[in-house]
């Protein structure tokens, strides 16, 4: 636990639990925002030399993941006057348990994957997989459209962590991929959320259940 990267990653994993365990939508959004802000520091720590490119990634990540997208989500939340995630498909305690199991599996699984010498001994891979799984859990177990988008955001955070392994070898892929996916995905989902609100005056995706076999 001496490496500063690892301390940061442990905080990120703890935030996964926070987001999964709270019924308050505001806490969910802020947890994801804090996670995004912490992750913005990651390129600075992983990448030893301090270049303009790394700084640009950090600033852009912080602006998007830490401020802009959470801000949009909080605004959507205020507009429809919803505060809490009521009755998720899987309860809060069971989903915390699943998250713990997922995190343990992520640590076990990543033990089987050989790392390049410069990454040996860091928590990057297990943290990435654990965050990805938590995001997936939020996405699949929650009913509110806003919670589902937060789940997607956390899933993206997991991929962002993994991207740090390649930031020196293939910086372009990492930057373009993560930011584009995030920005466009959330942007388009934001538009759809807006339409859902106009159509149903609510953001409960349970209302979206007319189509089935």
């Amino acid at each position: 636990m001496t490496h500063p990267v690892d301390i940061l990653l442990v905080l990120v994993i703890l935030l996964n639990f926070l987001v999964l365990g709270t019924p308050s939508l505001r806490m969910t959004i802020r947890g994801a925002a804090l996670q995004g802000t912490l992750l913005a520091l990651l390129p600075l720590l992983v990448h030893r030399g301090f270049g303009w490119r790394v700084a640009a990634i950090a600033v852009a990540t912080m602006a998007l993941k830490g401020l802009l997208i959470p801000g949009l989500l909080e605004k959507a939340m205020r507009d429809v006057h919803i505060r809490r995630e009521v009755e998720p498909y899987v309860g809060f305690v069971p989903s915390l348990f699943l998250c713990a199991v997922g995190t343990a599996l992520a640590i076990l699984f990543s033990g089987n994957l050989p790392l390049a010498p410069e990454h040996a001994g860091t928590l990057l891979v297990p943290a990435s997989l654990a965050t990805l799984l938590s995001g997936f859990l939020v996405l699949t177990t929650r009913k509110k459209a806003i919670s589902q988008v937060v789940g997607y955001l956390i899933l993206e955070n997991g991929i962002f962590i993994f991207g740090q392994l390649l930031i020196e070898a293939m910086p372009f892929l990492v930057e373009a991929g993560v930011l584009l996916d995030l920005f466009v995905g959330i942007f388009i989902m934001g538009i759809v959320i807006n339409h859902i609100r106009q159509e149903f005056s609510s953001l409960d995706t349970e209302l979206l259940s007319e189509l089935k076999d």
Binding site: L155, I159, G185, I188, M189, L208
Partner: peptide, 17 residues
């Protein structure tokens, strides 16, 4: 169609991620 689009985007985006 809104419901179909939402599911398409959610599942599709996760697939792409």
């Amino acid at each position: 169609s809104l419901e179909a689009t939402w599911k398409y985007l959610m599942i599709g985006s996760v697939g792409i991620a």
